[in-house]
Design a binder for these strands. Sequence first.
DNA 1: CACAAAAATGATAATGGATATCAATTTAAA
DNA 2: TTTAAATTGATATCCATTATCATTTTTGTG
Lengths: 142, 142
Amino acid sequence: MFDEIEILKSFLRESKLRFTPQRQTILEVFLSHEGHVEVEDLFLNIQKIDPSIGIATVYRTMNLLVECGLARDSVLLKGQQSFEKLYHQSHHDHLICTQCEKIVEFEHPLIEKYQLEICHTYGFTLNHHKMEIYGICLDCQK
Amino acid sequence: MFDEIEILKSFLRESKLRFTPQRQTILEVFLSHEGHVEVEDLFLNIQKIDPSIGIATVYRTMNLLVECGLARDSVLLKGQQSFEKLYHQSHHDHLICTQCEKIVEFEHPLIEKYQLEICHTYGFTLNHHKMEIYGICLDCQK
DNA sequence: CACAAAAATGATAATGGATATCAATTTAAA
DNA sequence: TTTAAATTGATATCCATTATCATTTTTGTG
Ligand SMILES: [Mn+2]
Ligand SMILES: [Mn+2]
Ligand SMILES: [Zn+2]
Ligand SMILES: [Zn+2]
């Protein structure tokens, strides 16, 4: 049982990359966020801890976190990339209100099962998937 | 039973917008494409017919086509927006090879059914959805 | 401890797709 | 014909992300 820091460290070691203070800070700030984080929010909170960290390093590190499976890029909110935690999180998909942009997370085991079936039918190996349902939430229906 | 031109015309009429030669050309070229079209390809083919049409009008018109339900924006290929026909097409989702970017279309009635269930559970009205499965295709597995 | 090679960083320039602007043109309706 | 509104194309602008590059940091080796 490893925690996220260990995951990142071993990923970096295998890739002959280095574990740096900046990468640690960025990972920690990212982990402190619940749900879906935009790069801008992430960057603001990172700068509170270490104002010398540049935006380029944030992007670079987030890409690494996606590569090693600690993050996934999530829904596109107002044109900006956003991320959410992937490790130690139960898999889920998203229900998005097109009016207020509220995001509800859900999971449905049968949908996951049929996805596997589909991959098998077409000879694909399953890597990951993205499923977003767009509609109007209860609040916005009023 | 209306065809696409009629759909667009009546949408424009209701919105107090105008049916123009440019819009007709763009719609026709779009309809002549099978599958998923990037803006760049679309623009090239439009210019073959009317070289005076500008890229801004193409974007503007494609947005209209999405609004009136004749097109939907589809998967993001190499950073560019792409569209596919929506009217008179059977609904389907996408299986995408992460290696060669091949796109296979599939449909699964049960998945659609469960999506409705989920919306009902959370009190959402269902508008549309997007489901993409990423994996490696048979050819690329070799 | 040097010392060298490789990797990482931050500032900033560059990229590129999409949108906004605006003067000129076209359209619809009276 | 006349007028107001809509549309167009050229082009400027926006803005998120990536590339560049000089400098700094890290790692490993003797
Ligand atoms: Mn989520
Ligand atoms: Mn398709
Ligand atoms: Zn809502
Ligand atoms: Zn493939």
